[in-house]
Design a protein around this nucleic acid. Structure first.
Lengths: 114, 114
DNA sequence: AAAATACTTTAGTCATGACTTGACCATCTC
DNA sequence: GAGATGGTCAAGTCATGACTAAAGTATTTT
């Protein structure tokens, strides 16, 4: 089914993993190196590198290597696309519930006994 | 690593799949039966049933069967937990950028040449 | 009662994901 | 320049995910 992952796919897939969410949580408090990201997580540095790559290709995180340290930070635009999708659904649900409310409040049902 | 999936895990994992997001999009415009959900998606009814189960255990969707029709609808509380997580990260990032801004704006650096 | 509808279940396949290990390569530090 | 530090690459393993196909169940229609 998945023939061409959209940026929304990549972002939600990236956030689906608790380790990657932990990394995003850490980075949302400020930039960090790969080792700093790895420190609280019981996992090889290699694994963290792989998670980081997922986060980068999803657009949620960016990074740059200077010397032997790679510094990572959040790209706010990445969070924005996922946030917008959720908010749009919430708005849609609210509108739907509103319509339902109006319907129940209506004194007569125009569809019945025309 | 994943020993006990939290509700946040389940919700993000559920939204990571484009088919399931399409189902949520449909349901956010109002309730629907399983067949109605399946109609626009080129996939067996069985597959849709399986996606539905994922959405239900994640807390994003609820459903009830009456007669031979199962009607599904969004549980707004489900969208809320994911939305809150994202908004919290965005807020955190903004605070961080603000701190950075203050730092750059400061006329002198108290850490240098004490 | 037979046929159609609307799922549901089970079992199996195939692809993808999340790691680990070990070798490797720069770049600092001494 | 030797050793430690910080990261990267390439395999390989093991579990999970996304389906399908086929058979089964419960309801509704005719």
């Amino acid at each position: 089914m998945l023939q061409q992952a959209t940026s929304l796919d990549l972002a939600f897939q990236a956030l689906a993993d608790p380790v990657r969410r932990a990394m995003v949580e850490r980075l949302s408090r400020g930039p960090a190196t790969v080792s700093e990201l790895a420190r609280p997580l019981t996992m090889s540095l290699s694994a963290i590198g792989q998670h980081l790559r997922v986060l980068e290709t999803s657009g949620l995180v960016r990074s740059e290597k200077v010397g032997r340290l790679r510094t990572c930070w959040i790209d706010p635009a990445g969070l924005l696309v996922t946030g917008r999708w959720i908010i749009a659904r919430q708005a849609s649900v609210e509108r739907d519930l509103e319509r339902l409310g109006e319907h129940l409040a209506a004194p007569t049902d125009p569809w019945r006994d025309p």
